[in-house]
Design a protein around this nucleic acid. Structure first.
Lengths: 305, 305
DNA sequence: TCATGTCATATCCTGAAAGTATGCAATTAG
DNA sequence: CTAATTGCATACTTTCAGGATATGACATGA
């Protein structure tokens, strides 16, 4: 069976035109090199070198072989290098998923941008979907990593770590009585302040989300919110708020949507109503771009559980 | 050091997705295969397979490696095949030299045509020159084989074998007294019949050739020929003959030149004046197209010394 | 003719690949 | 929930081929 050793030896002998010198360069003795060359010639079934009184010279068949051997040896090196680059996350591809509510979080956008800067060779594919669909997609190998909102059961085969808890804000029409004109920041609002308000909440068809968390928090605050409207997406929710049809509660990062006619007021932390952001990926020993991306996210967060 | 064995193993494991089955296909046991895969991963410096509860699966880096490994293994096979074809004389190149007096011999043209038919992949290069220049060219590796006329000293490093002896013909103006009109063939002519003729001979600047052989044969026949004219090339010699300025003596194969005004009459064999044709090549153990060509020539000749 | 340089051959040794036995972990069947 | 099954990993042994050493064969050149 031909091995790369044979190619390396043949190339060196061809370069030196001299078995003894080639052996020296290869760090072995002359007799084993002679044998290996002979062995190679037997395997190939052709004389590759003609033995001269002083040294050896390639036959035409030998030149054919050695020329190709050089290329093959180079290809092996290239293959190893490419594999290493891939493993280091310098090349390859990474499919990143996120929920619509995570799309605007600076951590997400920053991490994606960082990956692109650190490893320009990585093809990044972005996918926006609901938490449950993202989990599904992770399982189906459609995406490699996802930013999701809680609650996420620690389902098997997946590794989910909480990155941070976002504070929640009340979104209300800027004509609302709770909005102090001219002052952009006011003191935190208590959930109980909203007991008499009409709520506009968005609920996703699949799985529990903010909806249930908000209902539960209101319950803890001693009232049951009047949910006048529901909307399928966040943007439509905010539209309804702007139209003065009620108020809503959204994570901090989404207040960046500077929508006309909407004011954002911080909720008191003691309401325990927060929007956690999780990073999820298959719990395989991740390497390559995925590992790098996880590291980037970890570094961007004070601590990652 | 990475060997082809590693590539073969990795490809098989990737194909089977299963180390045990791959080992079976490779004709080895599972533990050594596991070890070799691990060993390869260490050499490359990346995890190529993720171990699953049932079987193994390629990592992205692993796919990069295996994809390239397949190509490399194929390239090795192709290299071996190409080398064999070259050694068998199915590919490669062959530079063939011949003297001008051999150019018209059917053996030469037939052999060259046969090579082209048997091995269309061989690039054939033809070179016409004098015997001594051809010998020179053989030494300088400019040509690989040559058809030459005698005498050729059995010089070192070269192998020269006589292919055949061509009978000689007398070329004379068709108005000559010796030419029997209407009869194309006459009984052989004796050299002594030509004792009173004017000879036109061609002599090459380098080395002895027919010139001396003819003079010597005439001497044996009991006369010294009157060399009225000399010409540098055969064609000009024949022109002088056609012009009626004298006669000449040429090898059989050259009588194919149906020149107007010239008649060719066979010389009696007993004159011992013949034109030997030799095949010369470097006495290296010849392989490839050269070996094939020598075989073709040998086969075309009753026996080759 | 003798010294020199070079490849080939013969023999021994070593190391690495392959074999054997078994352990460990996870899945699946009962 | 336990037991059986499956499949990779680990530990240890064996074998064989690649490498080392010594020497031979052969041609060259002084």
């Amino acid at each position: 069976m031909i091995e790369l050793r044979h190619l390396r030896y043949a190339v060196t002998v061809a370069d030196e035109g001299h078995i003894t010198r080639a052996a020296e360069r290869l760090g072995i003795q002359q007799p084993p090199l002679s044998q290996q060359i002979r062995n190679l010639e037997d395997l190939v079934g052709a004389t590759l070198f003609q033995r001269l009184p002083r040294g050896v010279a390639l036959t035409e068949a030998g030149r054919t072989f050695v020329d190709r051997a050089r290329i093959i040896l180079q290809d092996v090196d290239l293959a190893v290098e490419a594999t290493r680059r891939n493993a280091r996350g310098e090349e390859g591809s990474l499919a990143i998923g996120f929920t619509s509510s995570a799309a605007f979080h600076p951590l997400v956008t920053t991490a994606v941008r960082s990956l692109g800067e650190i490893s320009p060779g990585v093809r990044i594919k972005l996918e926006e979907s609901s938490t449950s669909d993202l989990i599904e997609a992770l399982r189906a190998q459609l995406i490699d990593v996802a930013f999701v909102r809680s609650p996420v059961e620690q389902s098997k085969g997946l590794s989910v770590s909480k990155i941070l808890d976002e504070e929640m804000f009340v979104a209300l029409p800027d004509s609302h009585r709770l909005v102090v004109k001219g002052a952009r920041r006011t003191s935190p609002i208590q959930l109980s302040d909203l007991a008499d308000e009409s709520f506009i909440l968005y609920r996703r068809p699949s799985g529990p989300g903010f909806y249930d968390a908000i209902i539960a928090a209101c319950g803890r605050a001693g009232f049951s919110p009047q949910v006048k409207h529901e909307a399928p997406r966040l943007m439509s929710t905010l539209s309804l708020v702007a139209a003065g049809l009620g108020i809503s509660i959204i994570p901090n990062s989404m207040t960046r949507l500077e929508t006309n006619g909407i004011a954002y007021l911080p909720l008191d932390r003691r309401t325990q109503l927060v929007a956690p952001l999780h990073l999820a990926h298959r719990s395989e020993p991740s390497g390559g771009a995925l590992k790098l991306f996880i590291e980037i996210v970890s570094r961007a967060v004070p601590e990652l559980g």
